[in-house]
Amino acid sequence: MNQVTLEIPYEIPVDAHNPVEPFLRMDRMPHIWCPGCGIGTTVNCFTRALLDSKANLDKVAVVSGIGCTGRVAGYANLDSFHTTHGRALPFATGLKLANPELQVVVYSGDGDLFAIGGNHFIHAARRNMDLKVICVNNLTYAMTGGQTAPTTPDHVISATSPYGVFEPSFNLVALAEAAGASYVARWTTYHVKQLSRSMEEVLSKKGFCFIEVLSPCPTLYQRRNKMGDGLDAMKFYKQVSKIRHGAPTSECALTKSGEIVVGKFVDRDRPDYLELLRGQMTESLGDRYAEPEVSCSC
């Protein structure tokens, strides 16, 4: 990559580098995301959260499904897994249980996590599996050309709803709370500081944590709906978002052009899967219970 910079009226220190670069596989840049897509912005927030959390990056794994956001795993310079469509969560479940010292982050899109992977989402949340889920919600299936997703709002035009969506959509934060998530927040790609802080917060929280990030898709969502480009989406987020920490998630449903309630909605402590497992086995088996040593040298 050419490090060409335009003429600037001051000196840049020679050792200056973009703080995201150590977290990314820079030999894979440029990435595949469209101009004005917000996925890269969420990645910035994630890398800064990792930096601020002082996590041991050798012990952080990223698991993605399929789709535009599914490509995050391929760009993260961590142990990273690009799995099958919808199955990032069960893959991550196996990874975490085999190697509990790993911090396992599931980074995927709304179609992947909530349509084809919806069943896995509610069960991983129910079990309070110690996974951090970052869902980039662009309200559509972007990789495949802008089809209707379970998150696409009413009246939106999509490739498979040419006359407008009429199916009710999911309210992801309400779904996550109802299924048992320990932590539920929503931000948009406009809220970079808050998003980064939320991500940092979940990196030190046990249990199933869910962060929804609304993100522009100018190419496949907005174009069909005359909603402008990525920057227009960002301005829209700025204009209509209301920060309401602790808001009842049932009141946080999204519409095509209405208010976007953002904030941290749920932050509760529930024993996670491994704690529950250990508790039950100890109660039933006493000294006969052997601590899992799933990962072996053989």
């Binding site: 990559m1 060409v4 335009l6 600037i8 000196e11 840049i12 840049m29 440029p30 990525g230 920057l231």
Partner: peptide
């Protein structure tokens, strides 16, 4: 402070 820009990586979104 300063900003550093890698022009060839930019897609002109304007954020």
């Amino acid at each position: 402070g300063f900003v550093a820009i890698t022009v060839e990586r930019c897609k002109g979104c304007g954020f």
